[in-house]
Design a protein around this nucleic acid. Structure first.
Lengths: 255, 255
DNA sequence: CATACTTCAGTGGTCATACCAGTGGCGAAT
DNA sequence: ATTCGCCACTGGTATGACCACTGAAGTATG
């Protein structure tokens, strides 16, 4: 009855490579930001073909553990933990995720993140946070620039929460919402109100008022959701599939 | 500054394949559970080499969108949405995730999941839930079997929450904790108490008491955490556990 | 001398081909 | 009719050659 069937046995060689790199990571032989040997050398040293080695590398790259740079080399991720951004988006295409479900997930994650940040953030976070608030007010007439600082603000909160796992989860959900969000901000008329909310959140966090920070964040996101819904309803999407191909690759005649 | 650098440009061909399959998914040309063409045929139809086609397939398989079965074929995932289980585990090895951080993430996700389930679950969920509770009481002398129904219970709540995204996120975190959890349950003496808690949670959900369900779930997980911490402290694991802290940041010594 | 351009070595990306390794069904032997 | 084994089909691995990109050393030019 045990359904412990390896649905994704990830072929022997691949796992062999993955586990090897994983052990190098755990033993500290590979540090974040460090470059791993070239594929040709690494493959030889692991006694596997370059193709298999690449399969393993791609697997790790697909989940954000490695960063591959064409013509340069492959490196261990160094920034904050994060999953592949496209994952939720693609998975949504398959399982038919609804926008409100993403908002709900984000609401829960981000509000708790704010609450935790209120309890754990340190001076360095305060300053970074306040700076972004200032930038937001300064960019109140430039939606695109405003968005940048908006995103940064939320990201700093994630760091300040002291829980990289929740931060990574939030980032995954948030990035899936980014596309729509950008359009929303472009037409938004209430950047001032939004900025005020961010300031209030910042103050709550700085004051260490966890529950208030959480409450304000919820309020902020609820507003953002309704605003976005309104936009979506008012201006029907033009291109449902945001595929960014440089050249229009047609030839849809598969079979 | 905008660091919109494509950290993971995922080479042209790969993305070409991924986007193609993605469009097939969105257009409904590919249904969950369906088998995709054989690699040789598919590669020919897409005008790419089999190697590149495989890179794309592996990418999608790595994030749970496709399931590959050696000697049989490649299929579109059909069950509930879920990310690769190993991702968090491997990422933890890199970023030094702490057990308490995982518990914290799980606590937040699962408590809200329980709350949502209380508001949205339907009859079919009630019965499934109650059945698992019964099974738990029946397996009160068999830790390993108890665990199975325990996991199932929580999984049903995830489904009943009506938010597949949160469910997938929770499953990811939960699976990373599974290893330790299994060991804990093996030695646990309080299965009866645990079963009682599950029953209480079930009742709250069935009664539609969201806040109570959430509170009970928090309480349940807090107990589980402390129990597991105790076990971990009392009986140091022999095998390297999935999470390992590095020298830099460590409150809890690991070696 | 300073600057701009070219060259080139090294790295990842793609391809083609052959062969290895599980699966499952069809057909022959019992 | 049942069983066993072959074999075609699927994915997995191995090679080796070549393409595309990057960065820096080397060279030509002002």
């Amino acid at each position: 009855m045990a359904e412990n069937k390896r649905v994704n046995p990830d072929s022997h060689r691949t796992m062999q490579v993955v586990n090897h790199i994983r052990s190098l990571l755990e033993s500290g032989a590979l540090q974040p930001g460090e470059k791993i040997p070239s594929e040709r050398d690494f493959a030889r040293s692991l006694k596997v073909s370059r193709a298999s080695l690449r399969t393993g590398i791609n697997y790790l790259a697909a989940m954000g553990v490695l960063k591959v740079r064409h013509g340069v080399g492959t490196f261990v991720a160094d920034g904050p933990a994060e999953f592949d951004k496209a994952s939720l988006s693609i998975m949504g295409a398959l399982h038919g995720f609804q926008p409100w479900q993403m908002f709900e997930a984000r609401l829960i994650l981000e509000s708790h993140l704010a609450g935790l940040a209120a309890e754990r953030s340190r001076p360095e976070h305060y300053t970074a946070l306040s700076e972004e608030v200032v930038e937001m007010f300064a960019a109140i007439d430039c939606p695109s620039e405003y968005l940048v600082h908006d995103v940064l603000f939320h990201r700093i909160i994630s760091q300040a929460s002291g829980n990289p796992i929740l931060a990574a989860l939030m980032e995954t959900v948030s990035s899936a919402l980014y596309e729509d969000r950008r359009k929303t901000v472009e037409h938004s008329q209430d950047l001032r109100e939004s900025a005020e909310m961010h300031r209030a959140i910042y103050r709550a966090i700085r004051a260490g008022k966890a529950s208030e920070a959480r409450r304000l964040m919820e309020q902020h996101l609820h507003l953002a959701e309704s605003a976005q819904d309104k936009e979506r309803a008012a201006a029907p999407v033009s291109e449902p599939s945001p595929v960014r191909s440089r050249k229009a690759s047609a030839g849809t005649k598969s079979k």
